[in-house]
Each structure stands twice: as C-alpha cells, then as structure tokens.
Design a protein around this nucleic acid. Structure first.
Lengths: 240, 240
DNA sequence: TCCTAATAGTGTTATTATGACACAAAGTAT
DNA sequence: ATACTTTGTGTCATAATAACACTATTAGGA
C-alpha cells in the first residue's frame, strides 16, 4: 500500500460510502426467483432494487450481508457468498457509493417476507421477468449474479441449497434445467448423481401423478468437504 | 437498499476507507513470482505488502487498480481481474479499511520496477518463498489469489497472459506445471492444445539445447471470444 | 376392473475424451 | 560419427458422455 504506508491522517482523503447488496435467490413453484424491494424515496423512488444497506463500522462485510438478509426475509444460516464489488463513480447520484454484492440461496418454502419500513413493498420476481428500470446499476448486478449462479452450477452443489432437505431426482433435474435453460437427459443425469455418491435414499416416496418419486437427502459429509459434483452436458461446439 | 432509500445525509454514517490492492503475478525464469513492496512506515513498517492504495473519488475501482499497477511497474494494458473484497474490522489498526483486491498477470520480461518513495523496496518473490510476516491480512489475500489463479487455469487461457507473444509448447507446459504444482503428460497436453485450435504456428523455431522448439502465438479470435480451453488431468478420486 | 396417460427410473450402445507410455525427430556437444 | 538432450507423434486400453429405447409404478377414467 503506497499511501496507507504514510503517516496516516484519517481526514486526509475523502471517503466513499460502502454498502452491501444481497441478491437473494429462491425457488417458487419450480422457477428461479429473486427477491426485490420497492424503494420509497429519492433516488429511484418507486423503482425496484436489490435489498442492501450500509456496512456498520464494527461488522464484517459478510455479517452486514447476513444482517440485511435477515432483516428482509427473517432467515439466517443460509448459503451466501461474495459476488463482486461494484464501485463506478456516479452509480449513485448522492455520493460515491461502493457496493459489495453478495448472493444468497434460500429454501423459499421456509419463511414469509417482511416489508421493512424503508420500502413500499417486497416481492419475489422470476429471474426472466424482472421489473423494468431497476434502481442504480442493480440490473447489472443481477445479471452478474445469475451468470455466476449458472456457471457455478456446473461444478458445485449450489443447486441443492435451493431445495428442501428432502427432494426427488426429477425435482433436482428440473432446477438444473430451469437455471441452465436447457433440457438434460434423465438417464445421464441420474447416473451421474448415483455415481457421485452425493445422495442418500430416505426410503420415502412422494406421490404425485404418475409413479411416485423416491426422496433423497444430501450426505452432509459431501457438502462440507471439498467434493464437487461436476455436471456438464458437453455442448457440442458447432465449429469445424 | 433499506437505508440508502432514506433522505440521505452524507454525514449520517461514519465511513470506512476504501483501498485497492493488486496482486501482480509474473514469470521469472519459469517460476511464478509475485510483486511485493516493503513498507516504510507504521503500521507494519519494514514488512512486505501487496502494492495498493486509496481509491480516488472520481475513478472506478479498476482504474484505481490499474493506476497502482502502473505506478509500481510502469505497465498498462495487462490482464487484470477483481479478486475479492476484504473488509474485516481490525484488519488495519488505523481505521476501518475495506480493500478491493485485484490480480494482474504481466509479461515480466517487458519492464523494470520503480521503487516508489512510499516504500523501501520493490521485489519479485517466488510464490512458494514469500517473506515472513506480511503486512495486514496480505498473506490471506495472496493465498486467495494463488488459489484463484490455479483454479482458473483449468478452464481459461489465463496462463497465456504470462508468456511473451511467441512461445513454445514446452514453455507453456512448464507454466501449467509450475502453477498447478504437478507434472503433465506431454503428449496429452500437446494434443489438447492442437485440438483446441487456440494456437497458430509462427513457422519460427527456437534453438536451445536439443531439438529446436516450434514457436506459436495465440489466435486473438480465441482470446476475445467465449471460448475456454479446459485443461484438466483427471485426478483420480481415491475413493471406492 | 382394465386400460391409458403420466411420471419415475434403468439398460445399452456408439462415440469421444483421457491417461499412460513407447517411439521418432532434430538439434547440440564432444 | 556418436551420445545426449529436448521436441514432438502414435497407439491403445479405459473411462466418460450423449443418445435413445426400454421397463416400472402410480392415478384416473371408461
């Protein structure tokens, strides 16, 4: 640090504001949704925005993100990771604001929403039916988050964080298809999962329309470890 | 943003300082090195640190990172990407400092170093022979950067940014081995590259000890596109 | 009750990718 | 010339993948 190396004077530099914004993903009736809040005040009053807020001086960035998440949804102990930091000058008309974006994956069935008094409304939107004219650069942040989620799906077990504790293979497959935006082959998908040894049969069955689906749960050992479930259907290059 | 939605008062919140730190990677005689500066002043005087500095109010984060890089090495127009943002309270004893870390890959043959007047010294260190007691949490940042570089090697063409414009396959292979820390099979590595169609034969040869090596260059079309060169030697799982 | 639709789940096979390793080629040093 | 060093290619057994046909088990209606 060339300048922090100096005899430090806290007032020497003008400081930007730092916020955290949290892109909250969840499944609702099998479709990927994202949680948005509608702003009350200037700037971007009435526009939809990603929930977020200022970082307190004594909390870590992740703590701040979890605090925001809990304020908005009441949930804690969910999967969360840092996404990217957005800090272009002018992204907020009030002052220089640097925003550390996180994304969270939650099991939506598990809780209700709480409208904070800072916003008109809170709402889930399907990721492909987002409202128009999002506040600030939040559309960019959202696209970034969706891209990241999509690409991490290929080499991690992220998708499982969106499902209830017990789930069927068809349901898992539909999530992959929903997020990746392409159809997968049932047989190959199931085989890959069987071979991965990620899942544990609960013995239970889930009745629906046709043949009942077997319910599985995760082997915790696998989630915690450095194990990755790499699913890719090879996407033939259309070159040559 | 719950709170930014408010009638905004710039003085309402205490603000952290924001810096950028840049992990600069380069090859020197075939080994992966990282550029460090030795601090002059408190805190961590005499300790080695990743180059970095405050973000000006009117420049983007990436601009700030490129400015720091150029101040330290004189280079510009190099590969650079945002790594992660570190912001734990207490990571800097002076005040709350949030640091947006970037990493850059440079072709080291191409320039000399400039010792800034804020530091005692600037120096390249092999990544596996780092000095002890780095300043702040810079050891953590460095480990983070090395991990990221290593993992991105498997599915991107990052490594090419470290090499001169024209290079031989054995040299490229040695970089992969150096960064991944494992031996690769020559035949398989070459075949993968040939099939990828990433390289273009320059026709030139490079004489050394034994048989001269053929020199290649990149096809720019491939670098810019969404093409990824995925090199993985499958690392047999030792389970089952 | 029996047939059909619907959904879950398995088997099979051709093709391609991978890992291992032997071998050939083209220089330099003596 | 000959040994040595380094570059570069060929081959083959094995594993992973994509495609697709098939079987299984339920609900619901005729």
């Amino acid at each position: 640090m060339t300048e922090t190396a100096e005899n430090y004077d806290a007032t020497k530099y003008e400081r930007p504001s730092v916020t955290v914004d949290v892109v909250i993903f969840g499944l609702r009736s099998g479709r990927l949704h994202v949680l948005m809040v509608q702003r009350k005040h200037w700037p971007y009053a009435e526009h939809w925005a990603i929930p977020g807020g200022f970082v307190n001086m004594d909390e870590s960035l992740e703590m701040a993100a979890r605090r925001e998440l809990e304020e908005e949804t009441g949930v804690h102990d969910v999967y969360m990771e840092q996404l990217y930091t957005f800090g272009d000058p002018g992204r907020d008309p009030r002052t220089r604001v640097i925003s550390v974006a996180y994304f969270a994956l939650i099991r939506t069935e598990e809780q209700a929403l709480q409208v904070s008094d800072e916003s008109n409304d809170v709402c889930w939107f399907p990721v492909d039916e987002l409202p128009k004219d999002l506040a600030f650069d939040h559309e960019k942040i959202l696209r970034f988050a969706i891209d990241r989620l999509r690409s991490k799906l290929e080499y991690t077990t992220l998708a499982f964080q969106l499902l209830p504790k017990e789930f069927s293979l068809p349901k898992l497959k539909r999530i992959y298809e929903e997020i990746l935006g392409e159809q997968l082959d049932k047989a190959n998908f199931y085989r890959k999962l069987r071979d991965s040894d990620l899942l544990e049969d609960t013995g239970k069955l889930l009745n629906s329309r046709g043949r009942p689906a077997r319910l599985y749960r995760f082997r915790d050992s696998r989630i915690e470890g450095d194990f990755v479930f790499r699913y890719r259907e090879a996407k033939k290059k259309d070159e040559q």
